[in-house]
């Protein structure tokens, strides 16, 4: 039983009430197998190597920053989507997390701008 299934199932104690429309949440899918996980692990390993390689390349600071942030965002997303099963869970959670993240990011930059602060 996965977490997604568990949420739609009445827990052990009788204090909980069975929801009216028990069943699958929209977008919830079964988890993938070990092979798929191993493949993602390989990608993560390769990306880490690329990151370190970029660090040793003599590229301009801007290129370095952009490349490294993009790559770590990629790793972040892979772990969240596959290992934390966001991809296989209800779509509501993806919307909530991505929406919340974008909102936080925009508030962060607006606040920086109004306070006249810079990142570096």
């Amino acid at each position: 039983m996965t977490l997604a299934e568990y949420r739609k199932r009445p827990p052990d104690t009788d204090i909980h009430v069975e929801p009216e429309e028990a069943g699958h949440e929209p977008g919830a899918k079964p988890h993938p197998g070990p092979l798929e996980y191993a493949r993602i692990g390989l990608v993560l390993a390769v990306v880490t190597m690329i990151e370190v390689a970029i660090y040793y390349m003599s590229v301009s600071h801007t290129v370095l920053v952009v490349a490294l942030i993009t790559l770590s965002a990629l790793k972040f997303s892979l772990v969240v989507l596959w290992f934390m099963h966001l991809r296989f869970d209800s779509r509501l959670f993806s919307q909530l997390f991505v929406g919340g993240f974008l909102l936080a990011l925009s508030v962060f930059f607006v606040a920086l701008a109004t306070l006249g602060a810079k990142l570096t």
Binding site: M1, T2, L3, Y6, E51, V52, I54, Y55, L64, V65, L68, I69, L71, S72, K75, F76, V79, V80, F83, M84, H85
Partner: peptide, 28 residues
């Protein structure tokens, strides 16, 4: 298996934080 899934969620959370720290603090 739910116990393992929940522990896993915590563990991956700790991991993705390190992904960000490693890039922002060490590499950049």
């Amino acid at each position: 298996s739910l116990n393992i899934e929940l522990a896993g969620l915590y563990w991956h959370f700790v991991d993705i934080v390190w992904i960000v720290i490693f890039t922002l603090i060490y590499l950049i």
